[in-house]
Every structure is written in structure tokens, then in C-alpha cells.
Design a protein around this nucleic acid. Sequence first.
DNA 1: TCGATTCGTTGGCGCAACCAACGTTGGTTT
DNA 2: AAACCAACGTTGGTTGCGCCAACGAATCGA
Lengths: 147, 147
Amino acid sequence: MEPGTPARLRATPSWLLTQTAAYASRLVADGLGALDARGYHYRLLAALDEHGPASQADLGRCCGIDRSDVVAVLNELAAKDLVRRSPDPTDRRRNVVTLTDAGRRELRRMADALDRVQETLLAPLSTTERDELTRLLTTLLDHHAGR
Amino acid sequence: MEPGTPARLRATPSWLLTQTAAYASRLVADGLGALDARGYHYRLLAALDEHGPASQADLGRCCGIDRSDVVAVLNELAAKDLVRRSPDPTDRRRNVVTLTDAGRRELRRMADALDRVQETLLAPLSTTERDELTRLLTTLLDHHAGR
DNA sequence: TCGATTCGTTGGCGCAACCAACGTTGGTTT
DNA sequence: AAACCAACGTTGGTTGCGCCAACGAATCGA
């Protein structure tokens, strides 16, 4: 009565990608949602943890998040004291965004949640298959990196 | 000044997936946008072409599109005479959706556009790598198929 | 010095994926 | 036959993510 997915879709890489990505996003949303966070929050906290304090524009660029979206997410993070926003003395256009201790703790919780998500997502794949998938996706991403 | 993407992101499969999928979606949107269509339109037309006339509910189920979204997209397809909606004589709850000749022609155009998209998307991958990627993604999708 | 560029911010858009509710119709149960 | 529940099409939302346009303020470059 309800036949399966059309074969032309199942054979289309772009469709496979968006479908698995949609499923992955659901898992991520569930995992981070339990911590009252979304993907954007994690990305920004991770960037701050790795690169240290940065301006909002730099944060947005390295995370692939639009400047305007960075503002909103940073507002939420600052409201929870996970991040501090202070004017840059050397350039009054900028804000310097700093990760707080609470932010570092929350980031760790998010990372743990995301680790569990990866496990669920990649469950049917062997270790070598997981590595291969990562390699292939990275190749694609790097190749198209220049926009 | 603007350091690269945080390493923890680049090592996270769910992030790689959503990023490449986002890029693929952009390509698809560009390709189909030239034909004034979106992904949803192609999915429904493809399903109709493969399985023949069907009810809206069945269409939605086999394409992974919500019933309510099917309504809207079908409205647009019907407005362009790519599809015909007629009441099912055997079950007055249902509509029978039929692909028109114009719909078949338009589907072909979309498929061609999408073929070019796949080419662009997978450009940096060898044939065996493309097959491997398809295999891995299919495995993931099938494993999580039962929602 | 003056024009171009950058920064933060506001406000908006589009797509994909969902969810809740409603009236209508169909099947099941009793 | 009546009562119930499930399925159908439809309307009208919401969310996350990715964008774009415009603005005043500040900085940089020619």
C-alpha cells in the first residue's frame, strides 16, 4: 500500500546526505536539548575553548555562522554566564568574547552528550567504516571549502 | 586572525554530515531553483513516476514528507499542471494524485539538473569512493529506518 | 582627509522538518 | 445499528539552520 522510497532517491547521494544529516540533526537536537542548547551554542563554545577569546566576527567566520546569528546565540550564552562579552580596548568596534568556567563545564557536558550521539548514529558501522566515512566527508568539505 | 574550524567539530561525524548536507542542499536548491522547484517537488514527482498514481498520505509516507507539507507542494504542482488531483471513488477520504505528461517532462528536466548537481558535489571523489560513500550512507539510513 | 571597509546589531526571508487540531469518511466492535 | 476509533486531507502554526540587507559607529587605506 505504501511502497518504499523511490529508487531514484535512494541512488542520489545528495538525498542520502540530507536524509542522514536530518536524522543526525534530530539526535543532536535531542542530546543538546536536554542541556537546553542547540548546535550553534556548542560550536561557539568549542571555538572559544580551542582558540581562546575572540571577536564575534572571528567566531562567526571560523564556525560558519552568520554574524547576525552569532549575536543572538551569544546573548543566550551570556544570559547563562557561559560567556562574557566585553569591549575590545584596542578596537572599539569589537567585543572580546571570553569563555567562563561555567562555560567550560557546560561545554564538557555538551561534548559528552554529543559523544553518545555519535555512538548512536554510527552504531551500524565498524571502526574502519567510520573512519572511511569521516575521510570521505572531510574530502568533500575541504574541496568545496572555498565556498 | 580568523583561525580555522575547531578540531572537535571537524572530528565529529554528525557535524561533517550536516555541513556537507548543507552544501549539497545549496547545490540542489540552485539546480532546482532554475526550474522553479524545490526538493519536495522532485521527491513527489519521482514517487509518482515510479509507483504510479497514489493518495497524498501514501506519497507523504514513502517520501518522508509530512501530510501537511504534501498538501502545499501538491497545490503548487497542480497549479502548474504537473499533477492532477481527483477524488478516489473507492474511498472518499482520499485523493488520487496522477502525474501528467507535462509532469513527466518536468521531472526529466529536474533529474537532469540533479545529475549535474551530483557531479559537482562528488567531483573530488573517485568512482569507488562515490560508491563507498553511497554504501555507508545507505547503511546508516537503513539501520535507522524504523525511526 | 575622505572613501572604503569592518564590526555589532536589528529585522527579515526561505527551506526542511515537524506538531496539533478539525471535520469527513471508513472500518470495527459490540 | 450505534459507538468507537483510525485514517484522510487541510489549516495553521513552530523550530533550527542558513542566509541577506541595512544601519550607525569605528577603523583603515589612499
